[in-house]
Design a protein around this nucleic acid. Sequence first.
DNA 1: TCTGGGGTCCTAGGACCC
DNA 2: TCTGGGGTCCTAGGACCC
Length: 451
Amino acid sequence: MTDPSVPGVVHLDLDAFFAAVEQRDKPSLRGKPVVVGGTGGRGVVSTASYEARAFGIGSAMPTARARRLCPNAAYLGGRFEAYREVSRQVMELAHELSPLVEPLSLDEAFVDLSAAHPDLDVAAVTAIAEDFRAAVRARTGLTVSVGAGASKLVAKIASDLRKPDALVVVPPAEQEDLLAPMSVRTIPGVGAVTGDRLVRAGLKTIGALAAADEGELVRMLGKAHGTALLAFARGIDPRPVVAEREAKSVSAEETFAVDLTDRRDLAERLRRMADRVAARLAAAGLSGRTVTVKVRRYDFSTLNRSRTLAHATSSAREIVQNATELLDTVDVADGVRLLGVGVSGLSEFSQADLLADLEDAVEPEADGAPAEEEPLESPQPYGPPAAPGWRPGQDVRHEEFGPGWVQGSGAGRVTVRFEGPHTPVGRIRTFRDDDSALAPADPPVFDPEHP
DNA sequence: TCTGGGGTCCTAGGACCC
DNA sequence: TCTGGGGTCCTAGGACCC
């Protein structure tokens, strides 16, 4: 439990994380608008660099709209391997502050400093946080914003206050005055719907919310949300920082470039996604009892159909079987925009699953045919370029020109810029997209020792 | 503007059990 | 024969987060 009189909870948040990694590794993009996200017709923005934000581009915005706002930005598909590696390095540095680290995503975590430091005050927290920010910059070349306060709520709000590249430590005595004038939307957990409800009830600021009637809030928002929000507004947040939270579900989903109506087509996509889910379960040593199929229709209405088994499974065959039967209960005639599969009710891998997996290995398909990945005939997800699959932003290597990255592709051509984190801005060359001298490559390695 | 993919948590109703 | 209250599990949907 955290001490409400000491600013011992820290929230760290890498600035424009995905875009910042791209700018770090691609010198030609530094100081320029960079957008990472889905690059196809139905893609949305995952992260925009601050230069891109100046054009009004933000997270969750359809990429099509972002392109209209800033046609000259670099639109990149994302390199999650590279992001995971940077994240791992930052979390490692966070663990040097305290053993109590709670990652929220690749680019965010809470750290409870009081688990490692007995006598904390504002000055001590400030020094620790500044050292940490310098260490992150030295190790990864990235900037991180840090907030600190007496609770998760305050630490999280603080880290956002002066982004990017900022540290804000909120002395507990000043917390109330800081929060009171802020919009209720500042509270994590208050989104568009809750925010509108509160504003319509005349509760625009955290200060107003703090003075609200609990019964009224509970009627408006439900028991859990109503009581928690009122407590937050009054500066009460008893949530502890929890290291190593266990996964509750594993899922895969895909939005198609074009709505699908053919059941066999959908069943085939479902099978591939179920295979990925099964592989991830197995890799994590997990199995689960509930199989869920998610269907988003042409009109964006979304359905879930789930089934709980008598035993936990991680078998691809069993997940596919159940998912397919669930999909059979859904009307797909009008068009399916997104399909997904998930497994929840997780537990540690069991002996029965090991046996089931052995059976899978012997007899991978119900009809005895070996499982093979054949190219699908019908519309590829995310439109062109489907053919050899050069993705914008992708790391590549050319036999003659060395390491570089894909700027764009189409009409049988790929354009590559040859540069890396420690080179000057590189030259651009265009190749046939089946040029055998060009191959996908691992992400470049950022070297902290390099000038 | 036309809406990704990976998750978490909460609510509500019905079945079932004691 | 009719009627309890509480607890747990399951399913479906929805808000929200990065």
